[in-house]
């Protein structure tokens, strides 16, 4: 069984403690989100899980066959056009160029990019389009584990919903597992099987929330209700400093 297991993870940058005693497991086909205020070590945790940072203390065991990463700021290669950017991961896997381009075009259309955008360079794309490209680049390699770093932040509501629906479909068919970080609670509730609340200084998990209802059965009402519930939670109020003074 493919899974990602994080045990007793601690991390420091110099003398600053960033993460303290993080434990969680992500099973195949599940969505786990990490929410918390900015600067709470969420990105560090994600990078540790994805192997982009070296683990110092504790362990991260990743038995997923393949994984890919969609970054918050897109991180497209400025000297490559839309299609070549999307195809990057496929080419790295040794796919033939013609096949890679074909697949990239298909997924670009699926993510709401137009044919006339295919030859554009990132400088000519809007923020939302860049994020779509970054998303497409991460998904075109058909990873079994997907890391998402606030991937919906620059998208308008319609497209956000669309991309989330794509992800929900994929998880429903157990094609993909997702570990993602966000500070948008509603987004987390719509997508996640489990939510970890990460409190800052140093980053540690203060509470876990689980949602049993399958994602494709969660309607707006469910999401609003759960959001309202979670917003009254003592720990959430403390962590996000929601209390009015």
């Amino acid at each position: 069984m493919e899974r990602l297991e994080v045990k007793k993870l601690h991390h420091h940058f110099g003398f600053t403690e960033i993460l303290r005693d993080i434990n969680f497991t992500l099973e195949k086909g599940k969505v786990l989100s990490i929410v918390g205020p900015s600067g709470g070590g969420k990105t560090t945790l994600l990078h540790l899980c994805a192997g982009l940072l070296d683990v110092e203390e504790g362990s991260v065991e990743n038995s997923f066959i393949s994984s890919s990463f969609a970054f918050q700021e897109g991180r497209l290669l400025p000297w490559k056009n839309v299609i070549d950017n999307i195809a990057l991961g496929l080419l790295a896997k040794g796919e033939k160029t013609a096949v890679a381009v074909e697949k990239s075009k298909k997924i670009a259309l699926r993510f709401g990019l137009e044919e006339e955008d295919f030859n554009k360079f990132p400088k000519d794309l809007s923020g939302g389009m860049k994020q779509r490209v970054s998303f497409a680049r991460a998904l075109v390699v058909e990873p079994s584990l997907l890391f998402l770093d606030e991937p919906f932040s620059a998208l308008d509501i319609g497209l956000k919903k669309e991309l989330q629906t794509v992800l929900i479909e994929m998880t429903a068919q157990k094609e993909i597992s997702i570990l993602f970080i966000t500070h948008d609670l509603m987004e987390a509730i719509r997508l996640s099987d489990e939510i970890l609340l990460l409190k800052a200084d140093p980053g540690h998990i203060v509470k876990r929330f689980s949602y049993e209802l399958p994602q494709n059965e969660r309607d707006n009402k469910y999401v609003y209700n759960e959001s309202a519930k979670i917003l009254q939670d003592e720990e959430i109020i403390n962590t996000f400093e929601l209390e009015l003074k």
Partner: peptide, 28 residues
């Protein structure tokens, strides 16, 4: 550094890293 990290996340082989990530930047 961000692009290097991106290249690492996709496990780009060294020759692709050089041709697609480093070279265009250095050349400019």
């Amino acid at each position: 550094g961000d692009l290097k990290e991106m290249a690492d996340s996709f496990n780009l082989p060294w020759h692709m890293k050089f041709v697609d990530v480093y070279f265009p930047h250095i050349f400019s």
